[in-house]
Design a protein around this nucleic acid. Structure first.
Lengths: 222, 222
DNA sequence: CCAGGAGTGGACTTGCTGGTCCATTTTTCG
DNA sequence: CGAAAAATGGACCAGCAAGTCCACTCCTGG
């Protein structure tokens, strides 16, 4: 029985070239649609319940799947599913940052990025799926660390590009170390978000980012 | 049967005035010793296994106690125990920072604090009991958030005092907002530690703190 | 059209873990 | 001393959630 919703997902997936599941089995269009639905549904469940409370039955209920499907697409079980969700969430983070990170060659652009970032996490509140996920399967699953490392690396690289864009535009001396600035910016974000998660207040994130941009700008005038 | 170790703990606790357990029951010296042993042992277990994997039986084995004792001293069960551990760990953090935070009136003192902080977390590696704890019982238990908020507040206040000490010593203009600087410093630490937890690398923590102190110092000369 | 494989459903098993309960020992204190 | 309270030991219970298994349906390709 295929309802309209599933059919739509199949159509949406049709363009994608043939993929393979983690176990190497070929997936049909329907299979890919189901797999994607599971990952997205699991991500929703995790955002709402947290990693601890979220159960496979919750995911089943949310995605209208059965347990056999979960283990069909993620043979290694819960950890493998969580890893897939981590990758999905990492993509979402970059997806949100990308339009702002693209052209950081003016101070106004930096301020837009800063405000957008604060606003995003303010809306998100104390839910940080990727944070909890990486902490959950942190030292146990080696793949989880790889996902987070990849995200941080890309994020930092984009920030460093932004700093260099300022330098290329003549708005910042070439003596500034773009990579170190980007690393510190990343730490400021992570710290602000971490405190937001722990306390529920965006204050630290806002102050840290404002100050980071201000300090960067101060380097231009000295 | 009381062995020498327990007796020593009783002696150590003897000086403390009569306390009460969370449920309001009076505790004898032996009771206080046992309770303290449970908290410390649980903290060790949590550091090694993480919140997820750690079980009450692990704590029992580590502390040579029975299940009835755990529920005798922490009637609300695991959450109450974890909360006690969180408080214990928070004290340890401040205890470590205190000697450095005490007299931040010279740039050398700030550098000592910075290096000591980096070194401490470098040794600790990817284990951050308080971080995982606060994330674990974060939004569920209201008390957990209070513990973390209290720690952050004290930490930030001490940093702000340090900034003001620089100002009082004439090494920093009075126009600098001590509280905002302290908030950003705290975010830098948290972010660096967070990235350390996720990636296993201290690089970001080191860079963030070095840059934070350098940026602060730069405010003195401009 | 039909055979084999992909996809699906859901009952069942299994292991663990938090939590309960009561018996027993030890300490306290009048 | 002796009774009451505190401390301790450990068997037992209950529920939950991950993972297994087999039967069944649907799709696809020759």
């Amino acid at each position: 029985m295929i309802d309209a919703e599933i059919q739509a997902e199949i159509d949406a997936e049709a363009a994608t070239p043939v993929l393979r599941s983690a176990s190497g089995t070929a997936l049909t269009a329907k299979g890919r649609a189901t797999r994607a639905r599971i990952v997205e549904g699991a991500a929703e469940v995790l955002r709402e319940s947290g990693v601890e409370l979220a159960t496979l039955d919750d995911v089943m209920a949310r995605t209208h799947t059965s347990k056999s499907q979960l283990f069909h697409y993620f043979p290694a079980g819960k950890d493998e599913l969580l890893l897939a969700v981590a990758g999905y969430e990492a993509d979402r983070v970059l997806e949100h940052q990308e339009p702002y990170l693209g052209c950081l060659d003016t101070w106004e652009a930096w301020e837009r990025w800063r405000d957008a970032t604060v606003e995003r996490y303010e809306e998100q509140g104390d839910r940080c799926p990727l944070g909890t996920l990486s902490l959950y399967l942190g030292r146990s699953t080696p793949g989880a660390r790889a996902v987070v490392v990849a995200l941080l690396r890309q994020w930092q690289a984009a920030l460093a590009d932004g700093v260099r864009a300022l330098q290329d535009a003549g708005r910042l001396p070439a003596s500034v170390d773009a990579d170190e600035r980007a690393a510190a910016l990343l730490a400021a974000i992570q710290g602000g978000v971490g405190i937001l998660l722990a306390t529920g207040e965006v204050y630290h994130l806002r102050v840290a980012l404002h100050q980071a941009v201000a300090d960067l700008r101060r380097l231009a005038t000295s």
